[in-house]
Design a protein around this nucleic acid. Structure first.
Lengths: 364, 364
DNA sequence: GGCCAAATTGCTAGCGCTATCACGAATCTT
DNA sequence: AAGATTCGTGATAGCGCTAGCAATTTGGCC
């Protein structure tokens, strides 16, 4: 809409006002240490007086460098990502970095397209979800000379940096918690086949198999995105299919909440007749009646850390640890009350991702 | 990080490849109709061959115009705004507009700062939440020559365009629903003093006053942001303060869910002993047990419409209606079951914002 | 055939900023 | 004290693209 911006205050105006050259103003703004005290003050006063705001486009063009960090994640609806995004934005505010967000809707092709699009704009950094990029995307990313952080989970071969948690281990830990609480016929309810969710389920199945309890009929999945309603539906389904189950492990807390509602509707006592465990420890889970056991993940912290790692790298001080494991911790609540006669919880053998893993039984 | 981008394919490379001048390539890309068929094809082939992607910064600098739409809303946590943002992004993808998001954390000063910041970058458009901008912000916005859409609610004096709903009317409508269902001592639970929430509460109080039922002791507020836990706490508080209430109107569905959980914990039968109504019709409300009555608002649609209005304005075809009322509709569910002897629901007198308002009693 | 209008293409001149180098003055070597 | 280094500042030359207009071609019409 705006035509030629006739009136814009430019760096030249400030320079004239302060009686210096434009380049000095530019330096005073970006590298104050390289400009002498008196000039810096005069320039600051001129900036103030003229209400000068640098043109980011001109800056980007001239320096072939931007302060835009691209964030490419699968979804905006899932509050898991909303939390991460909040962390990213909060930290971005404290630097001069801008955030440019795009969602892939869980499509690797769309992700590839977006990565290509972002890279062509030479962003200051890139934040990606997960480790399942297409081969073409991986090639571009490895060739790209910019800080990249993969978030949500950990994997063997980072493009650059990584911050997340060991999803299979988290799935294992929850399953072990249920076993230790005395449950045996533990079903698994999974909404949309999010790669992280799949890996948690792999952890679940591994533990079940180790105990000779694994069974295809214990798993119910759907392509629908995770939601409370889906939790209701999945619970009805598993109860119809395996009326003998004594616990359900839901791949996300909204599914767990749906399962709880459906149990209330069907008159299934939780946890006496059926235990319910979720994942991600949404705010509502602790408030539910009964409170729902969940696995807390550091989503906000993940966004903050990712942004920090990028800011540090840009500042020329890349973080010592390129891969950060934020761990997870069990929030054991009434919905998975140990059964009478269950052996007490023992400390599990330390695992790769267990560094910051803690185990909490909350009072209620 | 990136130094001089030595390798970047520029419009000149494409022009050379296609055997035309750079400006023609530029036109072919932006206004294909103004370039002849054969040239257009040659240029398209060259773009393809060289994998050319225009530099948006250079474009913005040269044209003093960007394709960035700024979105300034109070929060990212509240799923109300997440839904709006999703609509905005989904529609942005279908145009060539980019979205730049910032959150004010409910601070008008922060909002003013962000508006100033955005305007200095001459965005293609601006989307703002609500109508409570500071005087200084209002002045800047009225002076700005760009499409602006205020969302979430309607007001008398738009800066430019507006899409939302009549919040006081929505508050009235829910209160009337409760009255018609036979409830009389209706409390109001309000989390963070969101301006929209306040206006809904004003609607509630107006209706209560009209029926001689208004009372300060029926209202409980908190500065804490809306959440399920806050719903639990507010319910305990109101029950302690006014044990005689027969219904609660919660300013958001997460608060309503917390109220429901707390009732379950305290052994308060819903709706027999206490009816619960929420607002915004979150996905979980219909799935709860009992399903929670709520007022559905078109949040996703609001984002889509706002973006559409901006895109249309930029395209030189501003929407005929500068103010769009998306209405609201009651989703009456079991949590506000009419009491025995309640008079049947009558159609309310048509209101300003009732154009698209419908009233639904859902089966369950 | 000549003239005008419309359609098509290209030239020039920046947009506002910063990388790079150049320069004089102040500080440091030995 | 003469040269070698800093330090602080400025001049120059673009970054990649497009507005505005000029130049050219085409087509239509009398």
């Amino acid at each position: 809409m705006t035509r030629r911006k006739k009136g814009r205050t430019t760096i030249a105006d400030v320079a004239a006002e302060a009686g210096v050259s434009p380049i000095t103003v530019s330096r005073a703004l970006r590298e104050p240490a390289r400009v002498s005290e008196p000039l810096r003050k005069r320039i600051a006063a001129a900036v103030q007086a003229l209400d000068y705001v640098p043109d980011l486009h001109a800056r980007a063009l001239a320096s072939a460098r931007t302060n835009v960090v691209g964030v490419i994640i699968p979804s905006l609806t899932n509050s898991v990502f909303a939390d991460v995004l909040r962390g990213i934005h909060d930290r971005a505010e404290k630097t001069d970095l801008q955030v440019q967000f795009a969602n892939t809707r869980y499509s690797p092709q769309e992700e590839e397209r977006l990565i290509r699009l972002f890279l062509s704009q030479s962003p200051a950094g890139l934040i990606l979800a997960g480790i399942d990029q297409t081969a073409a995307a991986a090639e571009m990313l490895r060739a790209a000379k910019l800080p990249i952080v993969q978030i949500m989970e950990l994997g063997p071969d980072p493009f650059d940096m990584m911050v997340g948690l060991d999803q299979p281990a988290a799935g294992r830990a929850m399953t072990e918690h249920l076993l230790e609480a005395g449950y045996r016929r533990i079903a698994c309810l999974a909404a949309r086949l999010d790669p992280r969710s799949n890996r948690r389920m792999a952890g679940y199945r591994a533990v079940m198999a180790e105990h000779g309890l694994d069974d295809d009929s214990l798993v119910v999945q759907t392509k629908a995105p995770s939601s409370v309603r889906v939790g209701c539906e999945l619970l009805r389904e598993i109860v119809a299919q395996r009326p003998d189950i004594d616990a359900v492990f839901c791949n996300n807390d909204d599914v767990a909440l749906g399962a709880l509602f459906e149990c209330q509707r069907m008159g299934i006592a939780v946890p006496e007749r059926l235990a319910i465990a979720g994942f991600n420890d949404f705010e509502m889970s602790a408030a539910a009646e009964p409170p729902i056991t969940s696995m807390a993940t550091e989503r906000y912290e993940m966004g903050v850390t990712a942004m920090d790692m990028i800011a540090q790298t840009i500042a020329g001080e890349p973080p010592e640890e390129k891969v950060v494991d934020l761990g997870f911790h069990l929030c054991a609540r009434a919905s998975t009350q140990p059964r009478a006669g269950a052996r007490p919880e023992r400390q599990p053998a330390p695992k790769k991702s267990a560094a910051r893993t803690t185990r909490v039984r909350e009072a209620r």
